[in-house]
Structure formats: structure tokens, C-alpha cells
Design a binder for these strands. Structure first.
Lengths: 350, 350
DNA sequence: CGCATGAATTGGAACGTTCCATTTTTGAAA
DNA sequence: TTTCAAAAATGGAACGTTCCAATTCATGCG
């Protein structure tokens, strides 16, 4: 019967060495797999470790080589499925490279974000992928350059931070979905949701504007409404829009969850979405597929972005001198029902 | 201008001591806040650390005291919003206690789970909250008892592991939602989704059976179908059910995502859910509210479960000798449209 | 049988921190 | 001033590992 150590539970490399009748150096060689050690010795040491319930002490090890195989993944909003999928992509790639990702959620709190990142570097994380919380200032990240920690900013661009970046093609995506609405014949379009301070909103709204401009349509400033990027935010912004004298016939929303809030508000006002009014979102979260009517939106492949982010970070870890790199992920239009195109096609066919 | 260390980025307590003109012991005292150090000295040391860009090395520190303030949170399926919300509850409580949670996702892989947990204890995690992957055997967790690591099993009970446990009241919840369907007059009910090997399925199916039995209804073994707990699983299981000669009029699903798959299958067969057939789920994820028709389900307050799990783990960390404890979270019936109750009420009123 | 060569193993000095036992400083009482 | 206790600061020995240089052990060759 394996009789692991008593309650103190501190088996060290030295005790293994004693028990196996070798030196601690040999045990270390077995552990790291670096030197040349006779297969039978290796076996014996391995067995002894197992028998005594040995736990490798990474803290002690890092004291010497300072190369830990963990990376931090800091997410600003875990409750948003978009980020959960992003995280899955990150983990997939890191795992293959023999790294482990330790995630933490900041819930949009800069304070918490600082705390969590400090904890991570104190634990010797080799690198960090950061989806910055709202109001993150580039100065918050200066320590990374100084400490030589690989840092990559994802999803939300952070102008002024000279790091690698992985973001979706927000501008192009938004202009595509806007163009789609224009092609369906809409004249009066609104842009709804997201706060002015968000870079992502800037980009998406920029795409909206460029499509409007390209088509020669005029943009009514009254039809540009901010809101928190939540369902409730979308709901109240949409309610405000609908109380206007001159309502829009189509609404481009900041993201899917805002769009779903907007759809609820429209329904509450007795409008049939996809018929009386067109509403589109951004992100293509799994909810988008399942609301009724199904949401026309822009797919950005969060898993792919995560994979890319991880790959870029690894590159940076392995070559700290390398220049920061950017990856702009594709954003594809996904046509469903909420824009009215489907109904129109049906009508045309029937 | 703060001139942080060069590229090697290794500022130690000793360099701080030299620069501040004190001994390393004093710097240590400042860091830990333990001894008595003159306020002005403390200030000066703090400033020096700031100036040189000092990073505390937790690995080295833990070498002596072995008390790290991190705990691991191991999730089996991050893409399921239920677990994301659970994680948020865990973090909320840990943060207040000055702990940091490092999360990792196992994606239902036992191998990955072992890997991740090993990594966590190698890094000196004070405790671990585990939502076990499918096929986790209690033996997988024996190391925890041996090493004296606090371990808590959440969401999925693991019979035979003698750890603390936090789970929702699956049996009672399932019997409640089943009773609700029975009260609506259904005679022929199916239970659908989840694999036989899942403890949670056992519990929920048990609740289903107990409600059926209490009402004197007979249970047709042909109406008990397994499937993966995914949308696709629900879809195919439901398709199988609908191809039966003697169809059920109501279906209790393993969880919400399975139920949503089942609803899609029903719609594909031309049935109007909530009218031609009743379908109910379990968990009350945010999707449940937004599918059409909205899903009648059982709410289990994942955030609350997470908070409870964290609190229990902290208790265990602070008193390692304490007996394992269990918390069974409430499960409340949430009546929406997919069971037909709403439509019936409308008809009665009109 | 001695020797060179390479393989296998080993001792000891780091690594950055904490903590104990001391030493130094401070400030007030005698 | 001297004395003493309390407060503040310090040196050095751990902690568990890696890595270098050095040592021992096999093996094959002349």
C-alpha cells in the first residue's frame, strides 16, 4: 500500500534521492529529462516518487530558471459567451505547446485587472493575454515592457500600448452588415448601443458610417444612441429610438446581446422584427441563432481569434526581441431573419 | 523618470535594500507587513520598489511559508454558460477574502483535468474547486487527501470521493417540473438527454420517476432516451422520440441546451412547442429566456452555488481538520411558454 | 592490463524570500 | 549622565530546486 507522507505533506527531491539511493542531482535530471540517466535508474526514481507521493515544487524550480510554462488569460467578461469561446481557442493552442492557461475574470474592473495581472507575474507567468477591461489606460501595461513579460492585447484594441494585438475586423464587418440593410432598401438607419469610450464601438460605428456614406445616405445624429453593451442597455436605447417622431426602419446594434435587448423592446412596441423593422447584431454568439426571429449578425470566429492570440503570444515568448504583431480576424455577414431578407425572399418566391 | 531595470528584469529584495540603504530583512518586513518598521522607512522602501520596478517573487516566498493565496477552479465545460456563471460566483467570494482564483477548462477530458490539477498544486494552490469531467473516478482525487490540499467537488457529485460537495437539488427540481406537467394534464411523459453514466442524470431522472410514481402514472421504458448533453444530442434524441408510434405529449429534458435541441427537432417535425407538445429543461441558463417559445425550466442559481462553493473551500483551507461538508442548493420551477401553461391561461382568460 | 573516451552520477553553489535570534537605536525614567 | 526596556533593524540559515564542474563508472581498444 502506498503510504504517502504524513499530514505535513512535504516530500522533497532530497527525500526521493535518499529513498532511491541516488543523489538529488540525479532525481532532478529525471524530473527535467535533461541529462543522460540510465533507464533503470530513471524507472526506479519514478517509482519512488510515486510511492512517496512527491509533488514537484514549481516555485522552487522557477527560482533558478525563471521559465514557467504558464500563461495568464485575463478576461473582462466571462459571462459573455463570446469570451468563453475565445478562451477555448486560447487553451487549445497553449495545451499543444505544453503550456497551461490560468484564466481570471475582471468583470470590467480595472482594479481587479491590476490585481490579477500582478498576481500572475508574481507567479512567474511567461506571458499574458489580456482582454482589457473598460477604461484600461495604456499606462496600466507599462510594467510588461519593463519586466520583459510577453503581453498581448485581444478583442479590444488599446491605442498607445505598443503590444501585439488580435482583434476582429470590426470596421469592415459593420460596414458589410450596414450595406446589406441598404441593399434591402432601407433609407433611415440607426446605430445603437455601446458607450462612446469603447474603441470597439468607434470601429463598428465607423464601419456603419462608411457604408452609409458610400451609398450617399445621410446620417441623422439623433439616430446614434449609446447604451451599456447589455440586454437592458439595448432595450432602453431601442425604446428611446421608437419614441422618436421619425423612426428608423433599420437598426444596426453594437453587438448581439444589445440587439436582442432591442428586439425585445421592438416587440413590446408591437412591431414585428424582420417585417416592421430590421435589427442586426454583431458577434454571432450562439444566442443569435436561437432568438426569434433569428438574428442577422456578423460572425467573427472567437475560437479562431483565441487560437491566433495564443500562437502569437507563444511566438513572442520564444523570441522576446520580436516586433509586436497584429492579427485582424475576418468578420462575415450572417443573414438570418431579423433583417427581413428571408421573408422578402419567401415573398418573392411565393 | 522611473528607470526600471534593464532587459533581464530581475529586481530582487536585495537590490531594493541596497538602493534604500536598509537590510533585506527590513524590506521583507515591509513586504509582509509583519514586524514593526518605522513609517518613514516603510515609505522610503515602498518608493524605492516603485522606482526600480520591483516584482514580488511568490515562488521564492512560498518556499518558506507554503501559504499561497491562490485557489484553482477547474471547470469541465466553459462553453456552457452555466459554468461561466458559477465561476463568477466563486470569484466574487474569493476576491473578498483576498484570494485569487485561477481557472482552467478541461473540456470533459480527464487527462487534461489531471494535468491541470497537477499544475495547480505544483504552483502551491491552497485549494481547488473541481467540477469534474465525465468519467472522473474518485481515485483520481486521492492525492488531495494525501497532500492535505483542500478540495471541493461542485455541480457533479462524485460518489466515493470523501470531499465537500456543492450541488443543486436535482432530484427535487426534476420532480417539481414533472409534477407541473402532470398537473397540466399530461399522461404520457418522456425523459430525454444525458448519458447513463452521469450522476446528475441519475438524480434528475430519479426526480422524474418519483413524480410519475406519486401521481400513479406508468413509465414507459421506451420514453427514456440518452443523448450527449448538447444541442445536437437533444435534437437527435427528440427526433427518435417523434418517430415513435405512440408519441409522448410532454418531454422533460436533462438540461436547457438539450431541451433547446429538442425544441428544434419538434419544430422540424411541424409541431408547435407549447401547443402540440410540451418541452421543459433544467438550469435556467440565459438562453432559456430567449428561445421561442421561452423555455419552462428549473432555476438553480449558479452564482449562488459558486459563492457557496468558495465559502466552503475557504473554511476548509483555514481549518484543514474540519469534516467535509455538503451544500444542496435550491431548485425552483420557472414557468414560461414551452410547457403550454401560459397559452392555457390565456385561453382561460379570453 | 592500462588507457582513453564517453556515459552516468554527484556535490555544492546559487536562486529570492522568510524568520529566528541578535544587535543597534531610541527615548524616557532614574 | 546613566540605565533599561521597547522599538527598529539586521545577519544568516533555511526552503526545494537547477546547473556547473567535477568525479566515478563502464566500455572498447591497443
Amino acid at each position: 500500500m502506498p503510504q504517502p507522507q504524513g499530514s505535513k505533506g512535504k516530500v522533497t527531491i532530497i527525500e526521493i534521492a535518499d529513498a532511491a539511493g541516488v543523489s538529488k542531482s540525479t532525481v532532478s535530471l529525471v524530473l527535467t529529462g535533461r541529462g543522460a540517466v540510465k533507464p533503470e535508474t530513471r524507472q526506479h526514481v519514478l517509482q519512488t516518487m510515486d510511492r512517496l507521493g512527491y509533488v514537484y515544487n514549481r516555485g522552487a524550480a522557477n527560482l533558478r530558471n525563471a521559465r514557467s510554462r504558464i500563461v495568464g488569460l485575463v478576461l473582462n467578461d466571462l459571462s459573455n459567451p463570446f469570451f468563453a469561446e475565445f478562451a477555448i481557442g486560447v487553451e487549445k493552442v497553449l495545451q499543444m505547446a505544453g503550456y497551461v492557461a490560468f484564466m481570471a475574470n475582471t468583470a470590467e474592473s480595472v482594479v481587479r485587472q491590476d490585481q490579477v495581472m500582478r498576481m500572475m507575474r508574481e507567479h512567474g507567468a511567461g506571458g499574458i493575454i489580456l482582454c482589457p477591461a473598460l477604461d484600461t489606460r495604456p499606462e496600466h501595461l507599462d510594467w510588461a515592457k519593463a519586466a520583459g513579460t510577453a503581453l498581448l492585447v485581444a478583442i479590444r484594441r488599446l491605442p498607445g500600448a505598443g503590444t501585439s494585438v488580435v482583434v476582429p475586423e470590426n470596421l469592415l464587418g459593420a460596414s458589410r452588415v450596414t450595406r446589406h440593410l441598404i441593399n434591402l432598401g432601407h433609407e433611415r438607419l440607426a446605430f445603437l448601443g455601446g458607450m462612446h469610450s469603447m474603441v470597439v464601438r468607434h470601429e463598428r460605428h465607423g464601419g456603419f458610417l462608411s457604408a452609409m456614406e458610400a451609398s450617399g445616405r445621410s446620417v441623422d445624429p439623433a439616430l446614434n444612441l449609446e447604451s451599456m453593451p447589455t440586454r437592458d442597455g439595448g432595450f432602453s436605447a431601442m425604446s428611446a429610438v421608437l419614441s422618436l417622431a421619425d423612426r428608423p426602419t433599420a437598426v444596426v446594434c453594437y453587438n448581439d446581446v444589445t440587439a436582442i435587448g432591442a428586439m425585445l423592446a421592438a416587440a413590446r412596441h408591437g412591431l414585428v422584427v424582420g417585417h416592421d423593422i430590421a435589427i442586426v447584431g454583431f458577434d454571432d454568439t450562439s444566442e443569435a441563432r436561437h432568438v426569434a426571429p433569428a438574428l442577422t449578425t456578423v460572425a467573427v470566429d472567437p475560437v479562431g481569434l483565441g487560437e491566433r492570440a495564443a500562437a502569437l503570444l507563444l511566438k513572442q515568448i520564444n523570441d522576446p526581441a520580436a516586433e509586436p504583431e497584429s492579427f485582424i480576424g475576418p468578420a462575415q455577414l450572417v443573414i438570418r431573419e431579423s433583417c427581413g431578407a428571408y421573408q422578402r425572399a419567401l415573398a418573392a418566391a411565393g
